[in-house]
Simulated scan of single mutants.
Amino acid sequence: MNFDDKAKTWDSDPVKGERALAVATALRQRVPLAHDWHALEYGCGTGQLSFALQADLGRITLADSSPGMLAVLREKVIAAGLSHLHPLALDLTTDSPPAARYDLIYTLMTLHHVTDTRRLLHVFHDLLRPGGWLGIADLDQEDGSFHGPGFTGHMGFDRDALQAQLTEAGFDRVDFSTCFLMKKSTDQGERKYSLFLAVATRL
């Protein structure tokens, strides 16, 4: 998927906005967000989730590897006058991790695009302060119809397998819940896909 090409029309899809608001609500319910926290959204796209959470947090670093998405994001941040939102070009699969440490890291529909999820979870663990929180919202395991032929990422995740990876990476109090039911048009017609929110803490 070429995210640069999709960036300018990304926010015009009402389902994506609805999804971001649902995940933000689920995060608020399960994580004790604080106004002095420094958060990292990894794979932020146009920043829909962070915009939904910006009033609950302090500084937010919004990281993505797509120049097109980051360009749209920067325009939105300037237009909204939100000086505590900071876009960052970052690909943790190839770039060195930032020096900052975070109270919260969260992702939305990002992990299934990452080939080596085990390694990324270890990086997330290292980037969190002791006692910090991780929130991962992504697809439950599906049959491949969500992206269709040619997609090389994960066809969603088995919750037990991902929980094992999180525990192996050093996370504690791993907990899953269903946070959104997404309708999408596919080659087989309209389908529904469930999204989970996995929440965990670093000891």
Rank of each mutant, 00 (worst) to 15 (best):
F3L: 01
D4C: 05
K6T: 06
K8H: 10
D13H: 02
D13C: 02
P14W: 11
G17S: 08
L21H: 08
V23G: 01
L27C: 08
Q29H: 09
V31E: 01
L33T: 07
A34G: 12
A34C: 11
H35Q: 14
D36E: 12
A39N: 10
G43W: 08
G45A: 05
Q48S: 14
L49T: 13
S50W: 00
F51W: 04
A55R: 10
D56T: 08
R59N: 09
R59S: 10
I60W: 00
I60V: 15
D64A: 05
P67C: 04
L70W: 02
A71L: 05
L73W: 08
R74F: 01
E75D: 15
K76E: 12
V77C: 01
V77M: 03
A80L: 07
A89G: 01
A89K: 05
L90Y: 09
L92Q: 04
T93E: 15
D95L: 02
P97S: 09
P98W: 10
P98K: 05
R101C: 07
I105A: 00
H112A: 05
T117S: 13
R119L: 11
L127A: 09
L128H: 03
R129Y: 01
G132H: 07
W133A: 12
L134G: 03
G135H: 06
I136K: 00
L139Y: 06
Q141N: 03
Q141G: 04
Q141L: 14
S145M: 02
F146V: 09
G148D: 01
G150S: 09
T152I: 09
G153D: 07
G153E: 06
G153W: 13
G156W: 03
F157A: 09
D158F: 04
D158K: 05
R159V: 12
R159D: 11
A161E: 14
Q163P: 00
Q165T: 00
T167Q: 15
E168D: 14
E168F: 10
A169L: 04
D172P: 00
V174H: 09
T178R: 14
L181C: 07
K183N: 15
Q188S: 13
G189C: 09
G189D: 07
S194Q: 13
F196C: 06
F196D: 07
L203T: 12
